[in-house]
């Protein structure tokens, strides 16, 4: 009997404690509603699903204000930024993301510019190579004549030449 009572006491204390903790935890989550700054942090990474190219955090329309409240709600439910972004993309399509997800045809936009740029680099390298090959060839007219004495003042020499020319005219 005594032990039973003790057991009951322990159990009830334990229950009270866990329940209390749980209820405190439950009360704690909605209590500090996510601040505007937290909402904007997420909204900044999303785009208005109806207007073109307007980030969700600055869009002045009523619809966007409601979407921001939705973000606040999701944040208060403990969703992560990524979960919220995925949720919006699922609901409204990939256009709400700041850049196309890396999949399928979308790779094109990521691959094309580097390919063009590398093509440019290749072209440039081949031009410079040809240049070096020609310079190595016995064509006798390498660098334009340079004042042997003072190569460091090459720039000043140019300036002086111009001044001389100007004075002549």
């Amino acid at each position: 009997m005594k032990t039973n009572a003790l057991r009951l006491l322990v159990i009830s204390c334990f229950l009270a404690l866990t329940l209390g903790l749980a209820s405190r935890a439950a009360a704690q989550e909605p209590a500090p509603t996510p601040s505007d700054d937290e909402v904007n942090r997420v909204a900044k990474q999303l785009f208005c699903p109806v207007c073109e190219n307007v980030p969700l955090d600055v869009c002045p329309t009523q619809a966007c204000a409601e979407w921001r409240e939705l973000i606040r709600l999701k944040l208060s439910q403990g969703w992560s930024d990524q979960q919220i972004k995925d949720y919006f993309a699922l609901q409204y399509g990939d256009r709400v993301l700041a850049e196309p997800p890396r999949q399928g045809l979308n790779w094109l936009v990521y691959i094309l510019p580097p390919v063009v740029f590398l093509g440019g680099v290749a072209l440039l390298v081949s031009v410079l190579r040809r240049m070096r090959a020609r310079a190595a060839a016995p064509t006798p007219a390498p660098a334009p004549p340079q004042q042997p004495g003072e190569p460091e003042d090459e720039y000043l020499r140019r300036v002086e030449e111009e001044l001389k020319r100007a004075e002549k005219s």
């Binding site: 990939d94 510019p113 440019g120």
Partner: peptide, 30 residues
């Protein structure tokens, strides 16, 4: 030209995407 390639691809791609997959996408600051 590199910057141009980036800009051109970014401007044109939403059109291409919608044309071929019907999916609208946004290409923006990041």
């Amino acid at each position: 030209m590199g910057i141009l390639a980036v800009c051109f691809a970014g401007v044109i791609f939403p059109l291409v995407s919608e044309l071929f997959t019907g999916q609208k996408v946004t290409v923006n600051a990041p």
